[in-house]
Amino acid sequence: MSVKHGLLALLQDGSKYGYQLRAEFESATGATWPLNIGQVYSTLARLDRDGLVEAVGATGDEDDDTRSRYRITDAGRAELHGWFDTPVARRDRPRDELAIKLALAVAVPGIDVRAIIQRQRTTTMRSLQELTTLKRNAAADDVSWLLVVESMIFAAEAEIRWLDHCEAMLVRVARKPAGGSTGTSDPAGLAGPDAIGAPR
């Protein structure tokens, strides 16, 4: 997703100033996605260029605010509905750094994979606790915010389950005798840093 669609969505119910859009965006996503005002204005400029929004002059003579308000165009509305109607494909998301990190840790000799998994699980568990506290303290009718928090809770939960799975899998691999060799069987560095000097 881009900020672009978020701003279009917020312009649905009327024209708004940039600073207003920023405040509403943060309130809807619970400030989990902080925007700076520069981002808002540069995005609005691009939307304007593409004909998805248009600037309208400041209303009321007593209002000396020279900045423009923006309103969504028909093309912008079509773009927005197209966005809402299209499911987010997994391949559109950024690559998972953690999966890559673990894959590399297993592939590169001498890395303590177990320690990486442990640290990650502890960190993710703490985030899950913090998110749960946010959920507990949220107002029951703040549905937008609760949706965002729940999304992060489910993601953290999935990551922990995945880490458990990785660890179990690595332990199973480590337990298998390595091709009848009498040396240590520790392809994934599971025995920890002590194993680095062990015969391979």
Partner: peptide, 14 residues
Amino acid sequence: VDESGPTPSIETLL
């Protein structure tokens, strides 16, 4: 295995 967060020990497993 851990009191502050879940950090299981592989030694225990192995």
